[in-house]
């Protein structure tokens, strides 16, 4: 009962979340699976130098600048939470 009240996502939120993921792959013509692979590889490389939170890291393809203002290019934005900067590996 309480689970039902507190955990149910509204269909509006579901639509918004689905669209955000869908449009990323539409815009670059790259599948969510490929995004997952890119994410995995980035995490692997960064982990060599610092301790990061791979579970909550996010990568996204965005368009830099607002639309309608001329030329802009898609950019890959990664948000990688660092857990420990002094992760000495070298």
């Amino acid at each position: 009962m309480f689970k039902h009240i507190f955990k149910r996502k509204s269909s509006r939120e579901i639509a918004k979340d689905r669209l955000k993921i869908l449009l990323i792959s539409d815009r670059v013509n790259c599948s969510p699976e490929m995004m997952e692979m890119i994410k995995h590889d980035i995490a692997k490389v960064i982990s060599k130098y610092m301790k990061i939170d791979t579970k909550s890291m996010e990568i996204q393809i965005t368009k830099t600048g607002s639309r309608g203002l001329g030329a802009k290019r898609p950019a890959l934005c990664a948000n990688i939470p660092i857990l420990d900067l002094h992760h000495d590996v070298l």
Partner: peptide, 15 residues
Amino acid sequence: GDMMSSEDVVDILSL
């Protein structure tokens, strides 16, 4: 909460 608001749509399409 069963339809995206205009803010949601503008946020997604950024026009």
